[in-house]
Amino acid sequence: MNALILLIYNAVLNGAPLMYGTMGEVLTEKSGNLNLGVEGMMYMGGAIGLGAAFYYEKMAGAAASGPVAVVLAILFAFAAGAFGALIYSWITISLRANQNVTGLALSIFGTGVGQFIGEYMRVQEGGFVAISNGLKTFFQNSPFPASVRGIPVLGQLLFSYNIFVYIAIIIALLMARFLNKSRAGLHLRAVGESPATADAAGIDISKYKYLATVIGGGISAIGGMVYIMTIAGCVWNHDGLAGEGWLAVALVIFCLWKPVGAVFGAVLFGALMIMYVRVQIPMVPDQLYKILPYIVTVLVLIAVSLRRKRENEPPASLGLSYFREDR
């Protein structure tokens, strides 16, 4: 029992960055844009989010307040990702370049920017960028009081995570509501399914695509910051983020383009990532165990393509640019 709770607890913590990465990409893909630059945006978010918290603490000194640092880190990470996504949007939506190639270019660019900023800060600050332990607790500890956390079983299962897990769940619920219940959400889905129809219905295609991609990119980038501030321990390390962003792109399929599904999918992937520590299987070495998430994604991909259920399909125009003049 205890081992199971511990597994779930660690799975949620490991999955938290993926929640953001995936939700952001879900929003992006709902508009018909396949942005393969998630890895790059998460790198940017990670480096700039850490930088925001670090320089805020440096300026404020001992008076630095934890909540302010958390908010600043979120805002700066969001802005970094939104900036990357804006470049992507301009090139693919306004200038109609190929989405895959532009996304990959964004990946290269974003990884470069992230590592550059991380490295530059490290050199500037004499070899080490890390925030103080006092501030770290705000990023890594539960926002709930000890009395709530102390409830047996439920306390650890529900109330012991860091604040980012709860924010992710709130974003997921809001996004699900937005996509399925609001008029703007309906318009957005229409844009992703059939831009020509949506255009004929008087929906401003470009506006929806831009907004969804930029906001989605921002949300994805927060995931990078969460990774650096929680799993990586508030320190910039060179290859710390490797693969998270790509995994997020895969998870979008796994969760069938549903934001709430993204949360559960991220937890499942988080579990797969740490299972090798918690649940040893004889004869299977750790390193092979670690590729389990990727194999599972492949199986899901195949399964989705085998059983073509309409509600499980990707947005119909995913990956295609829309040229009104081409009709």
């Binding site: 396949l34 790509w246 390193q287 590729i291 194999i295 994604t297 492949v298 393509s305």
Partner: peptide, 30 residues
């Protein structure tokens, strides 16, 4: 799988990267 079931190749090929890299890591340490 692309030819047979129209499985999305962009993500499939991407995942294949991590699988083989994982195998190399295993060989490296094993």
């Amino acid at each position: 799988f692309k030819a047979r079931y129209n499985t999305n190749e962009t993500l499939f090929t991407l995942m294949m990267n991590y699988i083989i890299i994982g195998v190399v890591r295993w060989l490296q340490g094993g």
